[in-house]
Simulated scan of single mutants.
Amino acid sequence: MRYPWFRLAIFIVGCLFPAWWLYEAAMGLLGPDPGKILVDRLGLGALVFLLVTLCMTPLQRLTGWAGWVVVRRQLGLWCFAYIVLHMTAYMVFILGLDWAQLGVELRKRPYIIVGFVGFLGLLALAVTSNRYSQRRLGARWKKLHKLVYVILGLGLLHFLWIVRSDLQEWAVYASVAAALLIVRVPLIWRRVPRLVGGRGRAA
């Protein structure tokens, strides 16, 4: 296994945040509605992991270090794990496992549908993230995994719909996402190695 310490560090970070948040909830440190705080933090954590995942290829291009790309799949799977935890926390703490209430929530809060569509996209990417799927799908694998940009847009829309009264935090994440998309524009992407003197392949 390449870069085991880097992989281990990412694993520890991925586990650390939910564990700490659960500790805070158990100690009564999350205020009067800890369930909602957990739901929000897990969702935001998934968005952060998605953005960090998309940073890996530009970082490899800039630095020439292959370790960034090696952990890209691991980071993507952590994004998926956080989304699963986000949805589980929502069902447990917000709905109280009352499935009948879900229909009411969908009518009142259509951003849930947007989030669920994003989850389905992440599920497709997670299921096909292994080397077997890469070999089996061939050239179609890269096309499928370009869904990540659609998923990012859905995630930001979901987040925007929730915090529409306070856009400052959302704007930060949207700006990072925009920068990551702009740098992938072919004309800009081809110039990156010349600007910093590095070499790399687009992915």
Rank of each mutant, 00 (worst) to 15 (best):
F6W: 13
R7E: 15
R7F: 13
L8T: 12
A9Y: 06
A9K: 03
F11G: 03
I12G: 06
I12N: 06
G14Q: 03
G14L: 10
C15Q: 06
L16Q: 06
F17V: 15
P18V: 09
P18K: 03
W21E: 13
E24I: 08
A25Q: 08
A26M: 12
M27S: 15
G28V: 10
G28T: 09
L29I: 09
L29A: 14
L30N: 15
P32I: 01
P32Q: 04
P32S: 11
D33C: 06
P34H: 14
P34E: 11
G35W: 07
G35K: 05
I37A: 15
V39A: 07
D40P: 04
D40E: 15
R41V: 13
L42Y: 14
G43W: 06
L44M: 14
G45T: 13
F49D: 08
L50V: 14
L50R: 06
L51T: 11
L51Y: 09
L51F: 14
V52L: 15
C55P: 07
M56Q: 15
P58H: 00
L59T: 06
L59V: 08
Q60K: 10
Q60S: 13
Q60P: 04
T63S: 13
G64V: 00
A66N: 13
A66H: 11
G67M: 06
V69H: 09
V70Q: 09
V71I: 12
V71R: 00
Q74I: 08
Q74L: 13
Q74M: 11
Q74F: 02
L75R: 01
G76L: 03
G76I: 11
W78G: 06
C79E: 08
F80T: 13
A81G: 12
A81C: 09
A81E: 02
I83F: 05
V84R: 06
L85E: 04
H86N: 02
A89W: 03
V92D: 02
F93M: 00
F93T: 00
I94H: 02
L95H: 00
G96H: 03
G96A: 05
L97I: 09
W99V: 10
A100Y: 09
Q101N: 12
Q101K: 10
E105D: 11
L106D: 00
R107C: 04
R109V: 01
R109T: 04
R109L: 03
I112F: 01
I112H: 00
I112N: 01
I113W: 01
I113N: 01
V114L: 05
G115K: 02
G115I: 03
F116A: 11
F116K: 05
F116L: 13
F116S: 09
V117L: 10
G118R: 05
G118P: 01
G121M: 07
L122C: 14
A124F: 11
L125R: 03
L125E: 02
L125W: 02
L125P: 05
A126T: 08
A126M: 04
Y132D: 08
S133W: 12
S133L: 04
Q134W: 10
Q134D: 05
Q134V: 12
R135Y: 12
R136H: 07
G138C: 03
A139T: 06
R140Q: 01
R140Y: 04
W141S: 03
W141G: 04
K142F: 07
K143I: 14
L144N: 02
H145C: 13
L147K: 08
L147E: 08
Y149L: 11
Y149D: 08
